[in-house]
Design a protein around this nucleic acid. Structure first.
Lengths: 194, 194
DNA sequence: CCCCAGTGAGACAATGGTGTCTCAAATGCT
DNA sequence: AGCATTTGAGACACCATTGTCTCACTGGGG
């Protein structure tokens, strides 16, 4: 039906507004979320049964955007380092949402997390492992740690930009530069830019 | 008076229990905090007027531990890279608390943050700047970003250990290894361990 | 032994967010 | 214009947490 289609675009718009707001203020109330999306609390409730449902929908959105980014980054092709750069490029627009979900997930002690995340973790871990096997990456840092560190750096980068202490255009070089190269100068190894 | 001294040690014990609990479950209720400390909610309220007061006390504790770690790490001495390693070593025990406060601070949009943090930020930034001026660190990553990244990696590392996906003994090499060296192999540059 | 500061347990109202409902107004299609 | 559907605004009860209070109890010091 026509209405369903309209609901669909509205729902997506609401979801993205909520993501943008909750990224900045993770404790925002349902009323604030509604206002931020330009709708009433009643309508918000018609889209999402409750706060839980909203957060889970945001989680699904984040997972979806991650999967899309992972696909677009073609992690299997070419040097692993370049794949990492592509990944950060593709995932940059979702970094704020990821930061929100990343910290949100720390709240639940035992609760098993959405299976989608483990799948994403696996794909990213596999990339780092591939880089290690190819001799590109050091082997004394586990893929699990590199994956976790990537999340942390994405969140830190998003916050730095959010707070105005860093320029948005520097986001990718910051994250990639540190994740791959670290803070030390490596005179013989200037990373070639694509 | 005697009671004051007793209260003091109790207060500190309560504070550290609260830190340990809130590190794992940042939404823990006052009742849970009290139970975790082995006291009643009434007594908890006698120590800290309310939740705000408790969090602010935790913030003060975190700042204090950071300052202590910064002092102990002697950031001005020797190569900056070694100073970073010392800093992570000294700050490791507070990493969980830091992670809690770090994410807690993201909640408040405009609210000016505790001045203690800017002071700590400045000291760490100064360390990275020193390393850059000495030619140790690359200059295309700003000290502000390196500082933020350090926080992010400390938090990520703490969570990785918390979740059991990483061994506690690996915490420092993980954080320092990635922050300084990055993921790439640098064949000619094996970092000498102290 | 008595005193008394400190504690724990519980009652209590106040608060703030949530979820549900109603109804009038607006919107869009025919 | 007429109709169906969706919306916004508000009212409402509900719930969890908080902050305050009382009161009985314990345990250590005089």
């Amino acid at each position: 039906m026509l209405y369903d289609r309209l609901m669909a675009v509205d729902r997506d718009h609401v979801l993205r507004s909520a993501a943008a707001l909750l990224t900045r203020k993770s404790t925002a109330t349902m009323d604030e979320v509604a206002k931020a999306a330009g709708i009433s609390r009643a309508t918000l409730h018609r889209h999402f049964a409750g706060r839980d449902a909203l957060v889970r929908a945001l989680e699904a959105l984040g997972i979806e955007e991650c999967e899309t980014a992972l696909d677009a980054a073609r992690l299997d092709e070419g040097p692993a380092a370049d794949a990492v750069e592509r990944l950060v490029r593709e995932i940059e627009s979702a970094a704020g949402l990821l930061a929100f979900l990343y910290t949100e997930n720390q709240l639940f002690e035992g609760e098993e997390q959405n299976q989608g995340w483990t799948r994403i973790d696996d794909r990213i871990s596999a990339l780092f492992r591939r880089g290690q096997l190819a001799g590109e990456f050091r082997i004394d840092l586990t893929p699990a740690w590199l994956t976790e560190a990537l999340y942390g750096l994405l969140a830190s980068g998003a916050w730095l930009v959010q707070s105005g202490k860093g320029a948005p255009r520097d986001f990718r070089p910051m994250v990639v530069g540190l994740l791959l190269g670290g803070a030390l100068r490596h005179p013989a190894q200037p990373r070639e830019e694509s």
